[in-house]
């Protein structure tokens, strides 16, 4: 079995982002970047399947500028076998990313594709489902537990009502929640070893897909700020304020 994992480079989740004054986006210069958090879970799950002998090869793929390779390099350092970097200097929408990934899937023929459930920059939550649709594959979204059986994957999904269990036929797309596993840290020797693992670079224009964006970002602004509140000294004061001032209880 072969597994493909899609990893995206995003502003680190600990960074308090700043909106640009001219409304064109958010500041990214000198801002710490990392792998999209649930994509680390996707990598971890694939590597675990390899360690347990269920998967033969794990490939990590990213789409983005030159530096996006860092995310692939990080995946290689925790046990992924090889990487693919699809280079583009402009932002590609989820639909475009899904079209690119479809080309990679057709070339590599994996049995499973692991992705994050949501990128924490655009918060779209689309790409995995779109890729599944374009390939005509099944999907297990928002996975917090998976179990590989013969030709099927059992997926426990986190849904609004609680937990849902489904069984999907291979080949399949699984989008991962943070609760799927505990991503490991790379050891120094493995980081060194990862430097020797191959990353193939592909240019979007060579893939023969049209990834022109359909959604134009007219303006990015700061959300309205909440006006600061007060501190109360006692529980009695709190309850009195809620009753008589805010009138919510």
């Amino acid at each position: 079995m072969k597994i493909l994992v899609a990893v995206k480079r995003v502003i680190d989740y600990n960074v308090q982002i700043r909106v640009k004054e001219d409304g064109t986006g958010v500041h990214t210069d000198n801002v710490k970047m990392s792998t999209n958090p649930p994509d680390d879970n996707a990598v971890e799950e694939a590597v675990k399947l390899k360690e347990s002998g269920k998967a033969k090869e794990v490939i990590a793929v990213t789409i983005g500028e030159e530096k996006a390779q860092e995310t692939v390099r990080k995946a290689l350092a925790v046990g992924v076998d090889r990487g693919i970097h699809v280079k583009t200097d402009s932002y590609v929408e989820p639909l475009g990313v899904a079209k690119i990934l479809k080309k990679i899937v057709e070339k590599e023929k994996p049995d499973l594709v692991f992705m994050g459930k949501q990128a924490i920059d655009d918060d779209c939550n689309q790409t995995g489902q779109m890729l599944a649709a374009l390939l005509g594959w099944s999907q297990g979204t928002f996975a917090s537990k998976i179990q590989l059986k013969d030709k099927i994957v059992q997926v426990i999904r986190e849904v609004d009502e609680g937990l849902e269990t489904i069984e999907i036929n291979l080949p399949a797309i699984v989008t991962c929640d943070l609760r799927l596993n505990e991503p490991r840290y790379a050891s120094l020797p493995n980081i060194m070893k990862a430097k020797k693992k191959p990353i193939e670079q592909i240019f979007v224009k060579d893939l023969g897909v049209n990834v022109t964006n359909r959604i134009q970002q007219l303006k990015v602004e700061e959300p309205p700020k909440r006006k600061g509140g007060i501190k109360v000294k006692t529980v009695a004061e709190l309850v009195s304020k809620l009753k008589n001032e805010a009138k919510v209880i």
Partner: peptide
């Protein structure tokens, strides 16, 4: 190309949606 999670409708093709965990609002067309 889907428009996810819109909070405001400006017109039939223009919407406001949160990005970066709601730390920015994007107006998209």
């Amino acid at each position: 190309s889907q428009v996810s999670d819109i909070m405001t409708i400006n017109s039939p093709d223009t919407f406001v949606r949160p990005i970066y965990a709601g730390n920015a609002f994007a107006t998209v067309k």
